[in-house]
Amino acid sequence: MIGLKLKLVAIISLLSVIIAITHFVKKNKITIKYAIIWYLSLIVLMIFTAFPEILGWFTSLIGMKLSSNFLFVLLIAFLFIICISLTIIVSEQKEQIRLLIQEISILNSERENKNGKKNK
């Protein structure tokens, strides 16, 4: 079992990450949609820190011996999910940017054509 001091430090660290993310959301630097996945991961970690018994229960549930191993697996899973969602976001944005470039370029050339005709 972890000591009270360690528990406090862990909870304060997790809390400060939550506060930091909330701060970014407030400043419009992270949209809620993408902040939610961070909140979810952080809250799960927070629960495990506050009540290590739950962590132990989950560990034995999936047949693992060490809680720390389970924690690592869980963290890697969170990072996986976050990475995959980042890939999705980047791909979506690439698509949107391509569309924008095409539309603007077509509009641009139409406008230039019109101007060219007026000047003649």
Partner: peptide, 27 residues
């Protein structure tokens, strides 16, 4: 030479460029 053209404001690669042509054709 007054060749009718669309200038893409960013390089899109062959697929994006050709698609722009199809969009033009469609419009």
């Amino acid at each position: 030479n007054k060749i009718p053209h669309i200038r893409l404001i960013q390089n899109l690669g062959i697929g994006g460029a050709v698609q722009t042509g199809y969009k033009y054709a469609c419009e």
